[in-house]
Every structure is written in C-alpha cells, then in structure tokens.
Design a protein around this nucleic acid. Structure first.
Length: 275
DNA sequence: CTGTAGACCTGGAGGC
DNA sequence: TGCCTCCAGGTCTACA
C-alpha cells in the first residue's frame, strides 16, 4: 500500500490519537520484519512521551525521549488506532505483529503480512542513520526543481522511470506514482534519462508535486477514520490513467495502454500520449 | 562507481 | 474445492 502519500496520510491519521502521550507497554508477537525488531524496544521507550511523528521518504519517525522509533510499512504494512480493552487484547490478526500501548488507552497496532517493513530504534543524528544517509530530496523540498532533476540525470544510462524511483535522487515515488506521473507529464518511461530536456524536467517536477499532493488529499478524505479501522485503504479506489490498465483504452486518446518490465517492475504507458 | 538481479515473505487471483 | 503459478505498493545487498 505505501508510497509517499499513503505514509503521509497514515501520519496524519494516527498523530491526533497518540502525539503527546506516554507509552506504557509494547507487545511484539513477531520480531522478524525486514530486520529484527530490537529485542529491548520496550525498555527503550516505556514511560516516555511520544513527542511528535514526522516523515522522511517513506519512513515514519516517532520522536520519543531522546531517540527515534523508525517505522517503515514495506509493501503491505499498516498502522491502526484501536481502543485498549480486553477484547482487542486477545483479538488480533495473525499479521498484527506489534501493539504499542499509550496511557490514554489507545493502542497503535502494526500489521504487515509480507513483513517487508521495518521497526527500529535509533538515538543518533538522523542524517547519519543508515537508512537515511543516502536518501535524496523530498519532492516538496524547494531544492527539488527542474534544474536539480536535469543535473541528476546527465551522467546516467538509466531510464527516466528508474530515476524517478531512485531514492538517492528523489524519495517517495513508488511504482504506481512513477507510472502515473510519467503519463501526465507526457514522457515515455523507457526514455533514457539523459535525453530528457530541461523543459520536460519542468513538467515532471510539476506533476510529481501535483499528483502526490492530490493523492495525499484524496487519501486524507477516504482514510480519515484511523480509529477502529480495518477497511481497505483508498489506494485502489483511485482511478489510474495507466497503472495496471494494460490492454485497456487510454482515457485521453482511446488507444491501447501497453506494459513493459522496467527495472524488474511492471510499467504501463500510452505510446500515443507519451513521447 | 554504476547498473542490475536476487533476496526477503504472504496472500490473492486466475487457470486447470 | 483444490492445487499450481504468477503477481503485488519496497529497498537492501551482492555481483557483474
């Protein structure tokens, strides 16, 4: 589920329930995610206040005491807010791996069937954190502009799609949004990045911001209930122009949407609308 | 250094 | 209904 918009929407959805609250307990049913969850996590965060939740790339950062609880949702992770009561204590899905209990009787529950996610504890400077130190710009960072993108692509043989998904250049764009952004910007995903003009970079930067923003707003409205929620997220409720639509008609020009594997990821495009 | 393939893991969809 | 195969929102690591 999670590309940048879903992570941002999750942050906004859970923050009001738990920011400013004291952590009273942590139950870990399965430690094995992308990396093992720190075995002594409870000792690190018990009786400390969750000050603030922020986001970097697709990672959520929980500022707790003098350290940071880092959570990544991987491919299939979700965070829920539920009420702490006997029923919820004993009723959980087999993929509900972690519960964090707050003093206001709220539980933050982490579910992740595929376990590609990450839960980690870090106390240093976040810029040096091993999963952050190589990351590129946030798409909403002022420094992320057409000139930056253009410069970043001059000495590469990669396709433009691979560049958009390269988190050492710009973070947060996953497979779905890379496809959609390239369609709306009118750029073929197969283009070699160094052939993209500055003018095209202007379109791309504009559409990256526009589509991510729109999606955050949509997710925000369809996902406003993070409390007692386990329904499906607004992700597939959105109507995509090209993603997963191979063989179907282009919504703009009526020609067939094509697909091709790029960088081991399925890629969808309209050969008519995109050049 | 750069670019790509493989790895991690489960569930759902579709074919037979 | 059951079994098999393929596919999926991410990203780190190893290797050419």
């Amino acid at each position: 589920m999670p590309e940048l918009p879903e992570v941002e929407v999750t942050k906004k959805g859970i923050s009001p329930y738990i920011e400013g609250n004291i952590i009273k307990n942590v139950i870990i049913r399965n430690y094995q995610l992308r990396n093992n969850i720190p075995h002594d996590l409870l000792n690190k965060i018990k009786n400390l206040k969750l000050k603030k939740i922020t986001r970097r790339a697709k990672y959520l950062i929980f500022s707790i005491g003098k350290g940071f609880l880092i959570i990544h949702l991987g491919m299939s992770g979700r965070l829920y807010i539920i009420q702490s009561n006997k029923k919820n204590l004993f009723e959980y899905d087999k993929h509900d791996h972690v519960d964090i209990f707050f003093e206001n009787n709220i539980i933050l529950r982490y579910r992740d069937p595929r376990r590609f996610g990450l839960i980690d504890w870090y106390t240093g400077n976040l810029l040096d954190y091993k999963y952050f130190n190589h990351l590129g710009l946030e798409p909403f960072d002022k420094c992320f502009n057409e000139q930056f993108l253009y410069n970043a692509m001059q000495n590469t043989k990669k396709t433009i799609k691979s560049v958009l998904m390269d988190s050492t250049i710009v973070v947060g764009i996953g497979n779905i949004y890379a496809n959609e952004i390239l369609f709306v910007a009118g750029v073929l995903p197969t283009r070699i990045a160094c052939t993209i003009s500055l003018e095209e970079c202007t379109k791309l930067v504009k559409q990256i911001r526009c589509i991510l923003k729109k999606s955050i707003n949509l997710g925000g409205s369809s996902l406003k209930d993070f409390y007692h929620t386990d329904g499906s997220i607004g992700y597939f409720q959105q109507s995509f122009y090209v993603y997963s639509r191979n063989g179907k008609k282009c919504k703009i020009c009526n020609s067939n949407i094509k697909s091709k594997i790029i960088g081991q990821r399925n890629t969808f495009f309209c050969a008519q609308c995109q050049q």
